[in-house]
Amino acid sequence: MKKLMRFLGLLMLLVSFALPAAAAPKYVVDRAGLLKPQQAQELRQKLEEVNRKYQVRTFIVTVKSTGEMEAGKFANELLDQVKDKSNQGNMVMLLSMDKRKWYISTDNAMRAKITDEQGIKYLSNQIVPKLKKNNYHDAFLAFIEGTDKMLAYYQREGVPYDPSRGFNPMAAGIALVIAAVIGLLIRHVLIRQMNNVMPALEANAYLDKDSFQLEEKEDNYLYMTVKRVAKSKKSSSSGDSSRDDEHGGGGGGF
């Protein structure tokens, strides 16, 4: 435990060290060494631009390990250390490379703009595929662009960005296919109405019910078959969560 606290304290110190009172904070801290200097610089500039535009404080932090602490708890601790309450929101995106975990931690002000459900899910969809390919620079770029998009939406609309409000091509495709199938069924039913000529396959109407005499009735057990179907295991769609009253966000593996 002491080792863990020491490790965390050290990281806090490193991040805090990069926050001289008068200068701009260091918004990209690549402790895991995933980025080239030029890439880190590019990301830093873009993040500064976004932070300045929306008066928020957003960080990207990579570490080799969070020790025994969960990535979400680690990110929350980190956020508490670096957040500026005078801003319109604070957020930390953390990558922990030993267990290949990512986590985005938000304070309540940012949580109102980037919601735990739709907002984090949207960011997850943008960054996780790139993280899985070890394309960290592009993943962080996607994170910054996604954040920019959602904050701009909030500024413009006054409500958090919800991708489900926008046009969904997949839903449109599914709807079109199902509607076309129903349309074909309706056409088929209308065509069937044009013809009521049906062959008689049986002679039930001519069976003298009173004449029926059952002469043999015997049921013999033959064999048994057994079919086993494995139950589907529910998987957590939102991944790891270390949410509490003070922290929002979400994360998972990659």
Partner: peptide, 27 residues
């Protein structure tokens, strides 16, 4: 019936022998 990780369907198959007499009128 269900176990902790499976749904099991046992199907018992029977041979049902039937015979009888019946009349059809004016097919």
């Amino acid at each position: 019936y269900e176990t902790s990780n499976e749904t099991v369907t046992e199907t018992r198959v029977y041979q049902c022998i039937r015979s009888g007499h019946m009349d059809f009128r004016r097919i």
